[in-house]
Computed example of a mutant assay.
Amino acid sequence: MTFEDNDLYRDITGFAHDTPVWVQRTAEAWTEAGLLVFGVLFVIFWWRARHADSRAFAIAALAPVATAVAYVCSELLKSVITEERPCRAVPDALPSLITCPPTGDWSFPSNHSTIAGGAAVTLVLVRRALVWLTAPMALLMAFSRVFVGVHYPHDVAAGLLFGVLLAFLAVRVGTGPVARLTETMRASSSSAARWLTGPGATATARPSRHAAHARR
């Protein structure tokens, strides 16, 4: 199955070949390294959420899980649609900057873009201000997949949308149950469970001088 954006694909890959070598190498690195950066962000905000209330912790814990759910659904959809990669299917196109995936590793939708969209939106649910970081990261990752020549533009657009929608829904559906599980684990006698979920939003503020004086 194919769609008609061959000309746009040729334009983008032609532009990629005209860029300096360092730009090409950066795009080649980012197309994979971006996944690692999202993974690091997941860990950072899970760790911080250990000192937050149960709902905030639930959202942070669900962020990578929801992204993984979106990825699995994307992989299943690829196996149904079976679109050939543009680096093999588009006539008169320049060679891809990275090795063209083998036949059977289908093109639509882009798994990388699905993960990027899912990660971006779930991290924004954790902390809204992250939109200024995660949205550009996701867009750059999606564009890089076309830039290096292994996806059509429609692959990455669909992947982003697919990841955003599925991950968002997964977090919304799972937040309540995971928040209740978090409260149970925080009250558990298991030290591993308590470490995993953290102490929660405990009242650690010192009493004011006025309050201390009033108690004397």
Rank of each mutant, 00 (worst) to 15 (best):
R172I: 03
T202H: 00
F42R: 05
L166S: 00
T202E: 03
L130M: 11
A192C: 04
A201V: 06
F162Y: 12
I98F: 00
S110Q: 06
C87I: 13
A193V: 00
P199Q: 08
L36A: 15
F147D: 10
H51M: 14
T175K: 10
E4K: 04
F143L: 15
G39Y: 12
G118I: 01
L62T: 10
A119F: 06
Y71F: 15
R127P: 09
L160P: 04
R50D: 03
H213M: 11
P101L: 13
F15E: 05
P207F: 14
S107H: 12
G159R: 06
R128Q: 14
P136C: 03
F45R: 00
A52K: 09
F162M: 08
I98A: 00
S74E: 13
E84N: 01
I98Y: 01
Q24Y: 03
V69F: 11
T99Y: 02
H213K: 10
R209W: 11
P95C: 07
G104V: 07
D11R: 05
T114I: 09
A49V: 06
V173E: 01
K78T: 07
E84C: 00
F57D: 00
T19G: 05
M137A: 11
P64E: 11
V72D: 10
R216M: 09
S107G: 11
A212P: 00
T103C: 04
W30C: 08
V148I: 14
S54V: 07
A60V: 03
G118M: 01
A49T: 06
A211N: 05
G174S: 10
H154I: 08
R55N: 08
R127C: 12
A89S: 15
P177L: 07
E4M: 03
E75S: 15
P102E: 12
S107Q: 09
F162I: 01
R215N: 12
E83G: 06
V156R: 05
V126K: 13
H154K: 02
L97A: 02
L36Q: 08
L94Y: 05
R50P: 07
E84V: 02
V178E: 04
E32S: 10
F57S: 05
V43A: 15
T197F: 07
T182M: 00
F168E: 01
A116D: 05
R215H: 14
Y9D: 05
A214H: 13
F143I: 09
A201L: 12
R194Q: 14
L77V: 15
E84M: 02
H51A: 15
V90A: 08
